[in-house]
Design a protein around this nucleic acid. Structure first.
Length: 160
DNA sequence: GCCAACGTTGGC
DNA sequence: GCCAACGTTGGC
């Protein structure tokens, strides 16, 4: 199975790239995904070792800021069971979990963030999910070609 | 803060 | 199954 590539969004005011870097082993459970399509990508398609573009949304500027990798298969998101969590969902039962997550590990910080505006001007990213109007998916597939374009533009030549 | 676009819910 | 209402996302 060839490696796949993804883009994952996070609001830095909630969880930033630098927050990830301070986690033990630069690794964190990607809590809080509450969208079925995003969940299904994690559940059905993500494999350990897949590449991740780490994107800061609702920030200034919005940008890809780091390269990460998938560090586990999908497993139940414990925050869905936690009544004190903002991600609590009473419909998700221990014996029938509705929401899943994967572990994410930081690999490399971009020398400079690649902003949304820069991405829009790069050739070869026309069909990138992130750049589609109204795109809200927080876990998105990225093609190998898009991955290469982004890493080249970021000045990264030996990722993962 | 605004608001377009989107996903989900629930009445019918 | 339809679709209006609602809540959320996220760029600006």
């Amino acid at each position: 199975m060839p490696r796949r590539y993804w883009l994952m969004k996070s609001e830095p005011s909630v969880f930033s790239w630098s927050d990830l870097l301070t986690c033990p082993n630069s690794t964190t459970p990607w809590e809080g995904v509450r969208n079925y399509q995003a969940r299904n990508y994690m559940r059905d398609d993500m494999q350990v070792g897949d590449g991740i573009l780490f994107y800061h949304s609702s920030s200034d500027p919005t940008a890809i800021v780091g390269i990460a990798r998938v560090a586990s298969r999908a497993y139940p998101d414990p925050s869905a069971f936690d009544q004190h969590s903002k991600y609590y969902d009473a419909r998700s039962k221990m014996d029938n979990p509705q929401w899943l997550l994967v572990d994410v590990t930081a690999v490399e910080t971009l020398p400079r963030p690649l902003t949304l505006d820069q991405l829009r001007h790069l050739p070869g990213l026309d069909s990138m999910v992130l750049l589609k109007k109204g795109s809200r998916l927080s876990v998105q597939p990225v093609s190998i070609d898009e991955w290469r374009v982004v890493l080249e533009a970021a000045g990264i030549h030996h990722p993962i």
